[in-house]
């Protein structure tokens, strides 16, 4: 790995110091999809700063660019233009291997469709996120067991996901996302496939993670879910705007109408 030391980023504002609590800073991010001759601008001129321990929800109508933003935040995709500092490090122009390394060690994902391996046990599904980052087998099992405990599923460790309910599956996915102790937890509609009752259990889990100090960015359609976060940002036609606390209720109501 050829990650440049954070100390080299000392150009004033963006320098990474011990006291800097900004997990990520997006500055003028653009992402344009090119299909044949057609150019689709999915994100344009996005500015966003997320601080350590913040719980941010991203709301917006379908096709507005929410998933695109999450992919860029998660280093799964690279922006066409702009700068992205993650933990003080410019990651927008990192090569594939280095992005993979940062992603594997520092970012956890929860997907709408769970993405569990159906033939592997719950425990193996959780240990999977430490498989490529150098932890030994014993340590992996120990940490995975602890993570399953914290989502209340230690007693299901040897089950395969096919025998779990939807809510339990998503909690396994959360355990997998947090087991490597990431700096950032990204969730794309984590309750999209769940009914309202099981959704509550999963959302309660996110609340608990936030109180433990985890930084969370969550995409959602649902107004009531967005209101659980400290802060909401809204995307419309690829443009991102802050929703201030006073406007929250109104914004939430508006999102409700948009759906």
């Amino acid at each position: 790995m050829t990650l440049v030391g954070a100390a080299e980023y000392s150009d004033g504002e963006l320098s990474a110091t011990a006291s800097d609590d900004r997990v990520l800073v997006l500055d003028g991010i653009e992402r344009t999809y090119t299909t044949g001759d057609v150019e689709v601008p999915a994100l344009s001129d996005v500015h966003l700063t997320v601080r350590r321990g913040e719980y941010v929800s991203v709301v917006g109508p379908s096709g507005s660019g929410k998933s695109t933003l999450l992919n860029i935040l998660g280093l799964l995709d690279r922006p066409t233009a702009g700068s992205y500092h993650f933990e003080g490090l410019e990651v927008a122009d990192l090569d594939e291997t280095d992005r993979t390394s940062v992603r594997g060690r520092r970012i956890g994902f929860v997907f709408q469709s769970f993405h569990l391996l159906s033939h592997r046990s719950v425990l193996e599904n959780v240990t999977l996120s430490m498989l490529y980052t150098g932890a030994g087998p014993a340590e992996r099992v120990e940490r995975a067991t602890a993570a399953l405990e914290s989502v209340g599923l230690a007693h299901r460790a040897s089950f395969t996901p096919t025998r779990l309910s939807g809510g339990e599956r998503q909690r396994v996915a959360v355990a997998r996302a947090i087991v490597a102790e990431p700096a950032l937890l990204l969730a794309d509609e984590p309750t999209g496939n769940l009914d309202s009752h099981t959704s509550d259990a999963v959302l309660a889990l996110f609340d608990e993670l936030r109180t433990r100090g985890l930084t969370i960015v969550m995409i959602t359609h649902d107004a009531s879910i967005a209101s659980r976060a400290d802060r909401a940002v809204r995307i419309r036609d690829g443009r991102l705007t802050e929703v201030d606390a006073a406007d929250m209720a109104r914004a939430v109501a508006q999102i409700g109408q948009e759906r």
Binding site: G74, L76, T100, G104, R105, F109, H115, S129, L131, Y132
Partner: peptide, 9 residues
């Protein structure tokens, strides 16, 4: 995709 997301090169 999942393996890539959790750090597989």
């Amino acid at each position: 995709g999942l393996r890539r997301a959790v750090g597989a090169r």
